[in-house]
Design a protein around this nucleic acid. Structure first.
Length: 258
DNA sequence: CGAAGGCGATCTGAACCCTC
DNA sequence: GAGGGTTCAGATCGCCTTCG
């Protein structure tokens, strides 16, 4: 099988971005700038930003922010360190910034998140009692060659490729299968699927499988079909920055009844 | 691929709140 | 009153667009 030059360039870009992500992970507690990362990759910051965004779907700053919050979530549950200590450990020099960023992304303040044991009521997958006027429907199939290992999967629509904050709608599945999202507001969204754990084990990767596609433009009253190939999470995939999900028992296709 | 300019996102630090 | 955490206004940084 011949490798064309685009494949090689793509592989080189992924390597460059992969190394930058490694640097981010290793130096999470330091003040890293895009300039630093670009220099270590031997690129100008302009070119580096463009490559990074092409490979990961998000800017370097957003990716770093997601990594910090993801690690903070882990530390809040796995340690008894104070919120102030954790904010410094993940690279924030101001606990105020950390608290505000955490709240806007996860939906709870750091201390409230810890008290709740990592659960948040913000991410609701319950079907709405009353449908939005002109809402659309998105359905498709979640495919995986490792269906036995994926565990519970969250599928949701987000305004950005980094799944953080509240999804515009979502559902929970017991295993890769046909999914249906009802009551989807019109707009441009990213469809994200990620395996999730209901029991958060400290020091383990809680979202080993992921699928991201988009942007998908949803028109009023439209019916969209989107297939999602679920794959193992790569180092260059942005982490999931949701709170743990408050979910009922997963069903293969909930919300199907209309 | 590099650079400039505009603008939105993020950060800092201080004031404020809450609990003990 | 002290310590830990949250909120907020202003400053700074980074991203996006456009052009060379």
């Amino acid at each position: 099988m011949g490798e064309n030059s685009d494949d090689r360039v793509g592989a080189e870009m992924r390597d460059v971005v992969g190394r930058a992500v490694e640097v981010m992970r290793e130096q999470l507690g330091h003040q890293l700038t895009v300039d630093d990362l670009a220099r270590s990759a031997m690129f100008s910051r302009f070119h580096f930003s463009r490559i990074f965004q092409r490979v990961t779907g998000v800017s370097p700053g957003r990716f770093l922010s997601a990594l910090r919050l993801h690690e903070a979530k882990r530390l809040l549950l796995a340690t008894s360190d104070s919120v102030t200590d954790i904010s410094y450990q993940v690279g924030y020099h101001s606990v105020g910034t950390f608290s505000a960023r955490f709240h806007s992304s996860v939906g709870l303040s750091p201390s409230a998140y810890r008290q709740a044991g990592g659960f948040t009521t913000m991410v609701s997958t319950e079907p709405r009692a009353r449908r939005r006027p002109g809402s659309a429907l998105v359905h498709g199939r979640l495919r995986s060659t490792e269906a036995d290992e994926t565990g519970v999967i969250f599928v949701g629509l987000f305004p950005e490729p980094v799944p953080q904050g509240q999804p515009v709608c979502g559902t929970i599945m017991a295993e890769p299968d046909h999914f249906l999202l009802t009551d989807v507001p019109s707009g441009t969204w990213y469809l994200v699927a990620s395996s999730v754990r209901t029991a958060y084990a400290a020091g383990t990767e809680p979202e080993p499988f992921v699928a991201v596609t988009g942007p998908v433009t949803v028109h009023p009253c439209a019916v969209l079909s989107v297939d999602l190939p679920l794959r193992r999470r790569r180092a260059v995939d942005p982490p999931l920055v949701l709170g743990r999900l408050t979910v009922p028992a997963p069903t293969p296709c909930y919300g199907a009844a209309s």
